[in-house]
């Protein structure tokens, strides 16, 4: 004879009820973690390296990076083809993106095809040390933009375009595009990567930044070209790293 809970005769055996409970809990857990991310409180679920700097991960981050990242991101992580330069990028930004790749919030085609699989196998325990190590790697400017457009790009970078309601990039990204915390270092990044990212913000992929889609939607192709060009020539400048 099948057992049923007194309050719901339509559900069947205990096993079925347990299954229902488990899947409800799983759904609630997923919903609450994505609510966390959407509400901008992702920091709370996100690794807090200041409170917990690690130091217990047994693998040498330098060796790890050569074995696992350089294949796509180039020797010394300077960037290669479509894979951006990671060297010199901020710890907070690296960790935040690893999480976004892993949960597939960052879901443009290249991210889904490559990074979402890679990110799954990067151990969360390693995040702080990996991020810290990468942020100390020396950077070189890619210098692969259009020099003729750099001056125009600088004007937009420094002052935005007030009449078109475009804010100044340097407000978040710093006066030398060195970035800080979750705001990535853009200085010296590849023109091709930056251009593609600026275009991608308005293509309807997952919103991993609350700010960039609105800002990028106001840029025309010439402005994108100019900004990406200007940035590609910037040498690495010091950043406070974190706030």
């Amino acid at each position: 004879m099948r057992e049923t809970f007194p309050f719901d005769r339509s559900i069947g055996s205990k096993a079925e009820i347990m299954k229902l409970l488990k899947s409800t809990i799983a759904v609630l857990a997923m919903a609450s973690s994505s609510l966390f991310a959407l509400s901008g409180h992702a920091e709370e679920g996100h690794r807090n390296c200041r409170a917990n700097p690690g130091g217990e991960w047994p693998i040498d981050p330098a060796a790890y990076v050569v074995r696992n990242c350089a294949f796509c991101h180039g020797p010394s992580l300077q960037g290669l083809a479509v894979a951006p330069r990671l060297a010199g990028q901020h710890q907070d930004y690296i960790i935040y993106q690893l999480e976004r790749f892993k949960n597939q919030e960052r879901n443009n085609p290249f991210s889904l095809k490559y990074m979402s699989h890679v990110a799954v196998s990067v151990q969360p325990d390693s995040y702080c040390e990996l991020g810290a190590y990468i942020s100390t790697m020396a950077t070189e400017a890619r210098c692969d933009g259009n020099e003729a457009l750099a001056a125009k790009g600088e004007e937009i970078f420094r002052h935005g375009v007030p009449n078109d309601n475009i804010p100044a990039c340097q407000f978040c990204h710093g006066p030398e595009a060195q970035g800080v915390g979750k705001f990535p270092r853009l200085g010296g990044q590849s023109y091709y990567y930056l251009k593609r990212r600026l275009e991608q913000w308005v293509e309807g992929y997952g919103t991993i930044s609350p700010h960039m889609p609105g800002i990028a939607s106001k840029l025309n192709p010439e402005q994108i070209d100019a900004i990406a060009s200007y940035l590609s020539f910037l040498p690495a400048a010091p950043s406070p790293g974190e706030y």
């Binding site: 309601n165 804010p167 978040c172 710093g174 006066p175 970035g179 705001f183 609350p210 609105g214």
Partner: peptide, 24 residues
Amino acid sequence: KEKLEYCKNCHGNQAQGFQGYYTA
């Protein structure tokens, strides 16, 4: 409305203030 959205890029989506590289 559009101008307000422009200001909010730096001053925060509810004008609560915002910390980028600089403090608004």
